[in-house]
Design a protein around this nucleic acid. Structure first.
Length: 548
RNA sequence: GUCCCCAUGGUCAAGUGGUUAAGACGCCACCCUCUCACGGUGAAAUCAGGGGUUCGACUCCCCUUGGGGAUACCA
């Protein structure tokens, strides 16, 4: 009877399960090679949490000599967004996450496709048919109203909600009953006929998770929908079929899937497929407005979309470094010992991953970013800044292109030696930070120190300009400032002023701040002398003259 | 409601029965110093609570609490 039913429901399916086993044979990879995948739904929205997970997949596969592929999980047509696939690929590529196989801008790549679930209906249906044949799945015609009624009853009786056991009204329909309903043209879904039981008699299943160790949970008992009215499977079924036939060895996914794991285990078992190794990652969290820890969410956290980092101009390497520090707690230590090695050399392990959700920490990212950027050459930094500007700050592109040499010197200011400056965090901040070098962006931002008077300020600038010699070395230059200050009643050494504040108006630091503001518009900057050398004599004099 | 996962300073965390409970970010102070940054030194700050088990619990078990997730023909 099951066979007839299966034939009735899926008359168009001509391939057999065995056919697919040979179409998608086991991959010929070396021992220990992992096959991982990213399975985004095509909303086109990728956030830091996705990148976090993708990074795990990527590292695992590439570190082991395996394969990392992209599969588009578009079983929910309501979610489709045009151009989403390209967006996903671009976003990930920016952060150096590259796929070996799967959906790509040039179409499917690899021999385990199609890589869009919406194009795999035949494959899924073949196995749904098989399950029906074996009496492990059945058509269900229950209407929304019927389901709602069941639920209401269950709630009233304090029973587990869902379609299972005696509540699965269409579980044991006869062939004739099915035929009759079909003739009426009633829509139906295919449900799994679960062997599990609800409540105290439920069996416990154990699954070894790559990150969390042995997980023990009650078996599934729900007659979960595996094929929707549309003939497209639900995530659960598509996952099982795809990861089996794409020969995924490690399923890395967020912990929100933990509670549906028993469904997947039952499906794998009923299909007689080997279970992949599941790796359930903790979710990245953030603190919301009410001060609660919360999962990063697509709708509420646009600032945590990957685009945010691109727009701010965070360097992809910095983001990777940061992610690695929260992914594997021993990464920072390793990085300290191996400052020059690429992060790909770090032996990434699942066991070192945290089981609890990390809170995203912008402070930490900034710190990691400073350390990352300080290791990047001025030339590369320039290219990065320019590329960023072309996309997000076009008005400064010509400025950057006009005099590359000038900018290289600015970017390299005081970055050598064993105590290099670490001024740069991200592209937007970089430009802001060096903007005073450009007349167009130069403006007076800070006020003169309160230790100085208006009159003194004028005198200081005038005398400084008068004595200015561009060929002075740093100490000659600074001696002059000391003298100018001393003549006006400012201590030549800050310590003298601190000891006897009443003897002086201020100290040489205040004097140089005056010059700094006159020259840069700001009270804080890298070494003044070095800046003047880059600015050049003409511009230095010009700014001082203008200031008077 | 039910089920599942998680729980060490503000944040990320080391720790797997005996430790002065690492380290990093942030914060604060001091040093270096013409400002800032860098660098250095130091400080404050953590085992959610309650029961067990044990000679001994951050560590093992139970309960409570808190947080997260699932409970869809969404993924």
């Amino acid at each position: 009877m099951s066979k007839e039913l299966a034939e009735l429901l899926f008359s168009k399916i001509d391939k057999s399960p065995e056919d697919y086993e040979s179409i998608y044979p086991k991959r010929n990879l070396k021992e220990g090679a992992m096959v991982t995948r990213l399975g985004p739904s095509p909303t086109g929205f990728i956030h830091l949490g996705n990148l976090y997970g993708a990074f795990v997949d990527e590292r695992l596969a590439h570190q082991s000599g395996g394969t990392f592929y992209l599969r588009i999980e578009d079983t929910d047509d309501k979610r489709f967004v045009e151009g989403a696939v390209d967006t996903i690929i671009d976003s990930l590529e920016f952060f150096d996450i590259n796929f070996d196989e799967g959906a790509s801008k040039e179409g499917d790549k690899g021999s385990y496709g199609p890589y869009f679930q919406s194009q795999r209906a035949e494959i899924y249906q073949c196995f749904v048919k098989k399950l029906v044949e074996e009496g492990k799945a059945y058509p269900c015609f229950m209407t929304e109203e019927e389901i709602a009624e069941v639920r209401a009853n269950q709630e009233a009786n304090k029973e587990n909600p869902g379609i299972y056991g005696k509540y699965a009204l269409n579980r044991d329909l006869t062939l004739d009953q099915v035929k009759a309903k079909l003739e009426e043209g009633l829509p139906f879904v295919i449900r799994l006929k679960s062997d599990g039981v609800s409540g105290e008699n439920a069996k416990q299943i154990s699954v070894e998770d790559g990150i969390r160790g042995v997980l023990t949970m009650p078996e599934n008992f729900q007659d979960t929908v595996i094929l929707k009215t549309t003939g497209i499977p639900t995530y659960h079924f598509a996952h099982v079929i795809d990861d089996h036939f794409m020969r995924t060895t490690h399923v890395v996914r967020g912990e929100e899937w933990l509670s549906t794991l028993p469904i997947h285990v039952e499906l794998f078992t009923k299909l007689r497929f080997e279970l992949p190794i599941y790796c359930h990652t903790a979710q990245l969290m953030k603190i919301d407005e009410e001060g609660n820890k919360r999962k990063l969410s697509k709708r509420k956290d646009p600032e945590l979309s990957l685009d945010f980092y691109k727009e701010m101009g965070y360097h992809p390497t910095a983001v990777r470094e940061y992610l690695l520090t929260i992914l594997n707690s021993n990464y920072e230590e390793w990085r300290k010992e191996n400052p020059e090695l690429p992060c790909e050399d770090f032996p990434f392990t699942m066991e070192k991953m945290s089981n609890s959700g990390a809170l995203f920490d912008l402070n930490k990212l900034n710190d990691v970013s400073k350390d990352t950027l300080v290791k990047i050459s001025a030339a590369d930094l320039y290219d990065f800044l320019l590329a960023w500007a072309k996309e997000f700050k076009t008005e400064i592109v010509s400025l950057l292109e006009e005099d590359k040499e000038y900018i290289l010197r600015i970017l390299d200011l005081d970055r050598d030696g064993n105590k290099p400056r670490k001024d740069f965090v991200c592209a937007s901040q970089m430009f802001e930070y060096i903007s005073y070098f450009f007349d167009k962006h130069f403006k007076l931002e800070d006020t003169m120190p309160m230790e100085t008077t208006e009159e003194d300020v004028k005198k200081i600038v005038a005398r400084y300009l008068e004595s200015y010699d561009h060929t002075d070395d740093q100490s000659q230059w600074f001696d002059k400032i000391r003298k100018i200050g001393a003549a006006l009643g400012y201590a030549a050494k800050p310590k003298d002023y601190k000891k006897n504040p009443d003897d002086y108006k201020g100290h040489v630091g205040h004097v140089s701040t005056v010059i700094r503001i006159a020259l840069m518009g700001r009270s804080q900057s890298p070494d003044l002398w070095g800046i003047q050398q880059i600015l050049g004599e003409a511009k230095t004099r010009e700014r001082l003259t203008k200031f008077k």
